[in-house]
Amino acid sequence: MEVRTIKVFTTVDNINLHTQVVDMSMTYGQQFGPTYLDGADVTKIKPHNSHEGKTFYVLPNDDTLRVEAFEYYHTTDPSFLGRYMSALNHTKKWKYPQVNGLTSIKWADNNCYLATALLTLQQIELKFNPPALQDAYYRARAGEAANFCALILAYCNKTVGELGDVRETMSYLFQHANLDSCKRVLNVVCKTCGQQQTTLKGVEAVMYMGTLSYEQFKKGVQIPCTCGKQATKYLVQQESPFVMMSAPPAQYELKHGTFTCASEYTGNYQCGHYKHITSKETLYCIDGALLTKSSEYKGPITDVFYKENSYTTTIK
């Protein structure tokens, strides 16, 4: 009895394709271990004539594949690729409408935090270190965002349907971005203890939790000093293409032309909904596939993004 075979390709990165001759009487799992086709788990399936010449994702289970996976995804987590594939199996079914010149995501599976993050990423200057993220990001900007969303979920250790947080998501993504040249110098002034300067680099240099107003941050924000008295913390120097200011959701007025974009969060910790506000020729609110415009805006804002380049204080 002759062994019926077909020729397929296996890959971990969709760049390096490895030619395989597979036995049609055995499952993919018996031949390769966990195997995925377009995100779908085909591990328990036997090869079919229609699979001839198709590319299958496999887990990096030998040295060659491990090197290829690390170079593309910059992670050695053995569960990463499987999590990416199972997320992709959902995100490829989502709709990605162009809204006001940006790629958004039609609401499904509690994905409003991903839509808000995706919209924000198209408006701030950011370059990702893992080629996987950078490639998928370019495709997302062009309207094909399924891979990018699935990668975000995998890097953030999230599953489809789980509630997510924009600030946490951005923080994970910033860790995989090139923020080497970003720098922030802060000064804390206390009447009792004097003053202390701190220099922050990388992710810490672009994120701040405690106030939404970048102007206020430049002037000074009140913080408790270690001595128990009130101290003032203010920005001395900022070198970065953008800054992200966050605070627990509270009524906040966004003035046209003073910011790049913002995240609105309605609801409580267990259950809520994100919308995205962007400042173009007027203010726009993007909620999944829905767009509304207004000249002014007041609502429960939790993150505001500002364009920056270089700032030095005039406070002496």
Rank of each mutant, 00 (worst) to 15 (best):
G82P: 14
K183F: 11
H48T: 08
Y297S: 02
D135V: 10
N268H: 09
V203Q: 11
S86P: 05
I286L: 05
M207S: 07
L153K: 00
E239Y: 11
Q197N: 12
E144Q: 11
Q270F: 15
V58E: 05
K158Q: 05
S86V: 12
P97L: 15
V21I: 12
T314S: 11
G194D: 05
L254H: 01
L212F: 03
L88S: 05
V166E: 01
L290N: 14
S295C: 08
V12H: 07
S86Q: 15
T226Y: 13
F128D: 03
V58K: 10
T76A: 15
S246F: 00
D13H: 04
M26L: 10
K54R: 13
T278H: 07
V243C: 06
L102A: 04
K293E: 11
L179Y: 02
T292D: 08
K191A: 12
V67M: 11
R83H: 11
Q20H: 14
H51W: 06
G53F: 11
D63M: 14
S279T: 07
S50Q: 12
Y137H: 09
N110K: 03
M85K: 09
V236M: 14
G220Q: 03
N16Q: 07
K191F: 07
N268T: 14
T282Y: 13
I15L: 08
P249I: 03
R167Y: 03
I105C: 03
Q31D: 07
V185Y: 04
V160K: 03
K183H: 09
K92Q: 08
N129K: 08
E264T: 05
N110P: 02
E144I: 07
M209D: 07
L200I: 14
E168G: 06
A115M: 07
E71W: 07
T120W: 01
L291I: 14
G288C: 00
A142K: 11
D109A: 08
D77I: 05
G33C: 04
I124R: 04
F217K: 02
Y57T: 10
C225I: 00
K7C: 08
T27W: 15
E162Y: 02
I105S: 04
N16Y: 09
L17M: 11
S240P: 00
I124H: 02
C156E: 02
Y28G: 03
D303N: 00
A142D: 14
K218P: 01
A40I: 10
I6V: 10
E68Y: 08
A87E: 07
T35F: 06
A146D: 10
I152E: 01
L119H: 03
L290W: 14
A154I: 02
K92L: 10
P78N: 10
N14S: 10
Q122E: 04
V236P: 00
Q222Y: 09
S104Y: 04
H276A: 02
S50H: 12
K191E: 14
V160A: 12
K229N: 13
G210Y: 02
L65R: 11
Y284V: 12
A69Q: 15
P131G: 06
E2Q: 10
Y311E: 06
N89C: 14
S294L: 12
I105Q: 04
K127N: 14
L283V: 10
A177N: 01
E215N: 10
W107G: 03
M245D: 00
W107C: 03
F148Q: 02
T192M: 13
C156T: 14
K158F: 04
S79D: 10
D135I: 10
Y36K: 05
A40K: 14
S240I: 00
L118A: 04
F305S: 00
S104N: 03
Q197A: 07
T314Q: 12
K93L: 13
P130M: 04
T103P: 02
A247M: 07
E215I: 06
G220A: 06
L290M: 15
H90M: 13
D41M: 11
Q30P: 08
Y96S: 02
L283G: 01
M244K: 03
N61C: 13
P60H: 08
V99G: 05
L59R: 10
V236K: 07
N100D: 13
A250H: 02
I124F: 06
F217L: 12
K93E: 11
R139T: 15
C156D: 01
L173P: 01
T192V: 09
Q30T: 10
Q123Y: 03
V221Y: 08
E144A: 14
L126E: 01
A132F: 04
G267T: 06
Y265D: 01
Q134M: 11
T169K: 01
F259Y: 01
G82A: 15
V185T: 12
Y311Q: 08
I45G: 13
T198N: 11
Q134T: 12
Q238F: 01
A136S: 12
K92R: 12
S310F: 15
M85R: 09
L212I: 09
L212P: 02
T260P: 01
Y172L: 12
E264W: 01
T226R: 14
K255D: 06
A87H: 06
Q222H: 15
Y137N: 05
K44C: 07
N157H: 11
Y138M: 12
K275P: 00
N111D: 02
H90P: 04
L163I: 03
Q31W: 14
L81S: 05
Y137E: 05
Y36P: 03
V189S: 14
T266W: 07
